[in-house]
Computed example of a mutant assay.
Amino acid sequence: MRTGDGKHIALSITQPLIPIIKDHPNKMEVIIKCPYCGHETKVGLTYMISGFVGCKSCYFEEGGLFDTTIYLKSFDYLSYIDGQFYKDGYLANKKKWKERKKKIEQQY
Rank of each mutant, 00 (worst) to 15 (best):
M1T: 11
R2Y: 13
T3W: 07
G4Y: 04
K7P: 13
K7S: 11
H8C: 05
I9F: 06
A10I: 15
A10D: 11
L11Y: 07
S12A: 07
T14E: 10
Q15G: 04
P16H: 09
P16I: 01
P16A: 09
P16Q: 05
L17E: 13
L17W: 09
I18E: 08
I18W: 08
P19K: 00
I20H: 06
K22I: 09
K22M: 10
K22L: 12
D23E: 11
H24N: 15
H24L: 06
H24V: 07
P25T: 03
M28I: 04
M28N: 15
V30K: 02
V30M: 04
I32M: 04
K33V: 03
K33P: 10
P35G: 02
C37F: 06
C37Y: 06
G38N: 02
H39F: 10
H39R: 13
K42R: 13
G44E: 06
L45K: 14
L45I: 00
T46F: 00
I49N: 09
S50W: 08
G51E: 06
V53G: 02
V53A: 01
C58H: 09
C58W: 06
F60Q: 07
E62V: 06
G64I: 09
D67S: 01
T68V: 15
I70G: 00
Y71C: 05
L72H: 09
K73F: 14
K73P: 07
S74V: 03
S74R: 15
F75L: 05
D76Q: 10
D76R: 11
Y77H: 14
Y77T: 11
L78A: 14
S79Q: 14
I81R: 10
I81F: 09
D82T: 06
G83H: 06
G83C: 07
G83E: 10
Y86A: 04
K87R: 14
D88M: 09
G89M: 02
G89I: 00
G89W: 07
Y90L: 04
L91C: 00
K94Q: 11
K96N: 13
W97E: 03
W97K: 02
K98W: 03
E99V: 05
K102G: 02
K102R: 14
I104R: 07
I104E: 11
I104N: 11
E105R: 14
Q106V: 07
Q107S: 15
Q107K: 15
Y108N: 10
